[in-house]
Design a protein around this nucleic acid. Structure first.
Lengths: 226, 226
DNA sequence: GACAGTCATAACCGGATTGTTACCAGCTTG
DNA sequence: CAAGCTGGTAACAATCCGGTTATGACTGTC
């Protein structure tokens, strides 16, 4: 359990971090768009709190980028409670929104609420980029398209979505989908990937979603426009 | 299963609808008191989400009017500082309220909770679309037709009606109807569904009511000509 | 006891899903 | 180049799953 706070205002950063640490949350911080993204990648926090005004890119952009990579809750901080900001943040996938000034107690309460909910949610539906998977209904949404998938395909996508943008090793996929011991069953994975690619219309040479990383594994692309 | 959202703010309407559709809920919308009432009559949604500020009449009035016509859950949306008015909303029969700004996840979670609650308390008779079940009399009405059904068929329909428009898992149906689980009893469910389909005249290939979701379960359709 | 209604059980069929085998192309290595 | 690896593709077999039919047990009623 770890929280990320991104704010360029040193005072605000200190106040927020102090409040959260008082509540026994480990906190990592960053003070710009770039460092925020880097720290997120490095630390893999369970929740992110983003200021809207950031050097190097707005908090909105960071929010959008993070939402494509993770399902972790995102909370936005802003000085002015403008409706336009709110709508934009929520559209970008933010989960909550706090207007300055706020009390530390409020902050901690909202953070706890977000974490509790995120913990409960568990399954339905996972998403990354333009892909959205409902594992219970065995339904995969790609933009407007709705594609019925099989149980095995669903399990494959679960792990790939959970690690979108990162390479997932062949062995990990095998274990997650079949619960198998290592190398013997490469062929199963080859077939499964092949059939899934056919279903969603993906070309292995020029993959829009399901990229092959030779002799390592597969990766779900979240930035298809390179 | 269908939700109605009434709000005069186009942005808010878009955000809320988007979130609910992402969660696989069919959504119909309206932007005023009058259209809200009209759409409710036309679409017969299973839950209504009302903003308080509406042109043509307040959300409170609409809430009161709808409550006299339906048992469907009603959720109110309020802006900060209108907390006092919430008491009034609850007295008028609202089931839940959300204070702006709220996260889409919160919204979806609360909607699901309301629907779950509404589905459970649904004793006899229950209805969805053109189906109406009287579990005590073991009588199923489809439009004008009245069909006698058996106790087991009634229990099957109870759960399907309570989750109309949503997939209900095979295991859940087994537990609800027979109270025991385990793979061996798929056959029971097959038979029950088959006989029920014969009784109401439903074609598995082109189901008007009882749709099969392969390797998941069954679903009661409420938008047959979708 | 005859009868109808209800429900459990088994068997069969066709299609979907999954597992298996084989083959091909590209790449690396020696 | 040959050998050996990789990943993509095809074809086929085995299995699963849902729909259907048939049958018998059990109940209650007449």
């Amino acid at each position: 359990m770890k929280l990320l706070v991104v704010d360029d205002d040193a005072d605000m950063l200190a106040v927020v971090s102090f409040a959260l640490r008082q509540a026994s949350f480990p906190v990592v911080t960053a003070n710009s768009y770039g460092t925020g993204l880097a720290v997120f990648h490095a630390e893999q926090p369970d929740l992110a709190i983003l200021d809207i005004n950031l050097p190097g890119g707005s908090g909105f952009e960071l929010c959008g980028v993070l939402r494509r990579e993770t399902n972790a809750p995102i909370m936005m901080l802003t000085a002015r409670g403008e409706e336009a900001d709110l709508v934009r943040a929520l559209e970008l996938g933010a989960d909550d929104y706090l207007t300055k000034p706020f009390s530390p107690r409020t902050l901690v309460a909202r953070v706890k609420a977000l974490l509790r909910r995120a913990g409960q949610e568990g399954t339905s539906p996972t998403r990354a980029g333009d892909l959205s998977l409902d594992a219970e209904l065995l339904l995969l949404r790609i933009g407007e398209r709705e594609i019925r998938i099989t149980p095995l395909e669903s399990r494959l996508l679960q792990l790939l979505l959970a690690n979108a943008g990162q390479v997932v090793h062949t062995d990990r996929l095998l274990v997650h989908v079949w619960g198998h011991r290592g190398g013997g069953d490469r062929q199963l994975l080859k077939q499964l990937v092949h059939r899934l690619r056919q279903k969603i219309g993906d070309d292995p040479e020029q993959p829009r979603w399901l990229a092959t990383i030779p002799s390592v594994g597969y990766m779900l692309r979240v930035t298809p426009q390179g």
